[in-house]
Design a binder for these strands. Structure first.
Ligand SMILES: [Mn+2]
Ligand SMILES: [Mn+2]
Ligand SMILES: [Zn+2]
Ligand SMILES: [Zn+2]
Lengths: 142, 142
DNA sequence: GACATTCATTAGAATTCTTCTAAATTAGCT
DNA sequence: AGCTAATTTAGAAGAATTCTAATGAATGTC
């Protein structure tokens, strides 16, 4: 494989930069995740997509990889629904709409939601992150 | 049983008002939930507490009841952690700190977090609710 | 390139949380 | 008391995720 010229945003470069060994499985998953704009995926979804491409990646590896990517800062873990874990390829500052009825996440630009006041963390603790989730239901009018 | 004078905040009154039959199990659960200030409980926690009081309530009933209470507006469902569902006895306007390391929720008064701007819902949808979760980690200093 | 070492992948079992099923019990009504 | 619908229950089933321990692959050294 020719690896002379590797952009940092290409799958291989991404893995290298994150200090992750570029295995066949990780490259396949990185391609699915990062080559089509921002996405919110579940492990199962990703497994199906990879399978559709003909690649075989075990569920254990899907989960391992998603967690590795998350620890490396390539993904962000989003919790909005019980019993369903989303991984977000958009790691920048932003929030979410959640369409309950479709189990679908939609990004809200970080600057669109402004917190006029943020509470102080209780003693001995520090703020790790702030999630704003705007839950949506079908509009009755319409 | 004398039911001539029942406050609406007593377990029996609460169930009546919500149109729920006051069974032995529901009364026991309502007592645990609503007689000690605002709480964030999991099904398992509640099962253990009820068991400690000598009452036997099946897991199926715990879940059924928590969902009934939630539909009736007596509880609020809080999603902050994958694979762990909290039920909140505080149904008023407020947000949450979440102490990841202890799996513990702390209320933030509704007015303490002010959203300076809230995005419009996408066409065909309406805002159902807005959750603000401030995730906490141990403070490094200290 | 061969070898050694470390890390990654995998199938399947196991775990955890929650829901379902279908039978037995109970509350509310007359 | 007797009727009916709602409720409870044990245990099975389901769904998502993690674990295990054996196999395979990437990387560094000679
Ligand atoms: Mn859902
Ligand atoms: Mn947790
Ligand atoms: Zn996002
Ligand atoms: Zn609360």
């Amino acid at each position: 494989m020719d690896v002379t010229h590797v952009s940092e945003t290409e799958p291989l470069g991404r893995l290298r930069k994150a200090g992750l060994r570029p295995t066949r499985q990780r490259l396949a998953l990185a391609r699915m995740l990062f080559s089509q704009g921002d996405r919110h995926v579940t492990a199962e979804q990703l497994r199906d997509e990879v399978a559709a491409e003909g690649a075989r990646v075990s569920m254990a590896t899907i989960y391992n990889t998603l967690h590795h990517f998350t620890r490396a800062g390539l993904l962000r873990h989003v919790v909005v629904d019980a019993g369903r874990t989303y991984f977000d390829t958009n790691t920048g500052h932003h929030h979410h709409f959640y369409v309950e009825s479709e189990h679908r996440l939609i990004d809200i630009d970080g600057d669109t939601v402004r917190l006029a006041s943020v509470p102080d963390a209780p003693p001995g603790r520090a703020i790790d992150s702030i999630d704003v989730i705007v839950r949506l239901k079908p509009d009755i009018r319409a």
